[in-house]
Amino acid sequence: MTALLHLGLALLLLLWPLQASATQYLCEGDPLSAEVHQGAVDASGIPNSAGGTVPGAFVVIEWRGVSLQLPRTNNAGAPSYTDGHWWWQAADPASPDFAERRRSSGEITHYRCESAA
């Protein structure tokens, strides 16, 4: 029984990346990949579950050689993700919002993005 459980867990770990699919964009002319993961959440009754996501979910962004894992916020409305430095929201999938807060100045740079489809 234990061996069967270990085999099942190993298969789950191998198949886990296949559960989320990346959406392709062009941001400032460079390819960007955004892959939303639902994450494990053990809290029930979370007030904002718009877009089928809840806090605990995250997005993985690949852009210009940088890989970001941004946690889901609990802001009202469409799902948004931030680590306090980078921010992502695809309320309009054809033109998502992507921004970076400069640590030294606090200035926010907004990057122009569009669907690559």
Rank of each mutant, 00 (worst) to 15 (best):
H6L: 14
L15I: 09
W16C: 09
S44V: 14
A50G: 04
F58A: 12
T53C: 09
L11Y: 09
Y81V: 08
E35Q: 15
D30Q: 14
T23A: 11
S115N: 05
A10W: 04
P71V: 10
A10Y: 03
N75D: 15
F58V: 02
H6A: 13
L68H: 02
A50C: 07
Y81A: 06
G84R: 11
T82V: 06
L70I: 09
R112E: 14
L5S: 10
D42R: 09
S95W: 00
A76M: 14
R72Q: 12
P55E: 05
C113W: 03
N74L: 08
P71D: 09
W87G: 11
Q19Y: 08
D83W: 03
F58C: 05
A3L: 13
A43G: 03
L14Q: 08
G77C: 05
G8W: 03
A43C: 11
Y111A: 01
T73D: 06
A78F: 12
L5W: 04
P71N: 08
P47R: 10
A22R: 01
R101K: 14
V66D: 06
V59F: 02
L70N: 07
V41E: 13
S49M: 10
S105N: 06
R72L: 06
P55Y: 01
V66R: 14
E35I: 00
L15H: 07
L14C: 14
L4R: 09
R64M: 11
G106T: 05
A57E: 00
P31S: 03
